[in-house]
Amino acid sequence: MPSPTSNEPIIRFDRVNKDFGDLRVLKELCFDIDPGERVTLIGPSGSGKTTILRLLMTLEHVTPVKHPDENGGVIWVEGEPYSHMKKGGKLHVANERYLRRRRQKVGMVFQQFNLFPNMRVLRNVTEAQVHTLRRSKDEAEAKARDLLELVGLSDKIDNYPNQLSGGQQQRVAIARALAMDPDILLLDEVTSALDPELVADVLAVLRDIAETTSITMLIVTHEMGFARDVSNRVMMFDQGVIVEEDTPDRIFSDPQEVRTQDFLRAVLAE
């Protein structure tokens, strides 16, 4: 699925560290993701998967490394430094203004939906189109209606989020993220907070989006069937490092590492 014209990774983690207090959750982490790739991150809780998504959404910031030009510790997106900015030919930790500009191409869907409860469904999807991307109200509404139809919620446009089921709320959240035309979509355990019978609808929407768009996706999930169907690469994390990575077929049917085998056995036994 990577677009043939581009040979540059859309995301590059170059020896990225992330500490929470004394705990180092990511350890000199390196990986590249090509445009259009769908990568699923798996691993036990606390292995750093969600932290990777939160770093890309700039909800967390990398732990600075001295002399990033030589020593790394930098996230790159679309060939430009992302966690850092170039100033006088050197890399410096990015300031809020820089991050605000850069993160517009990244969208995120959260485990807890995080819809705005004071806005109706339609406005949840138009708000940032109008106020971040400066689209006209008509344009934003047209786009929102299209996306809400795509996620199967055309009839809920005038409802408030708490009048919807969890699965419906999550589909609105997906529409809200897509409305920003992201190049990169981060899916953070998007079905974990849902009742089991609501999971399928959400996954169906995401499968549809994976098939019909070329958005690069990073997925943290415990839905192994979904991971297998949608992703072209799976990365297994443990204690802040990549233990193993491979195609989903290979990693699910023939994992090489003991930690991967143990993890998959535990998850699939659920």
Binding site: M57, T58, L59, R100, R103, Q104, V106, G107, M108, F110, N114, L115, F116, E127, A128, H131, T132, R176, A177, M180
Partner: peptide, 9 residues
């Protein structure tokens, strides 16, 4: 966090 993810001013 949602507001940040949407880059709202």
């Amino acid at each position: 966090e949602a507001a940040t993810a949407l880059s709202l001013p």
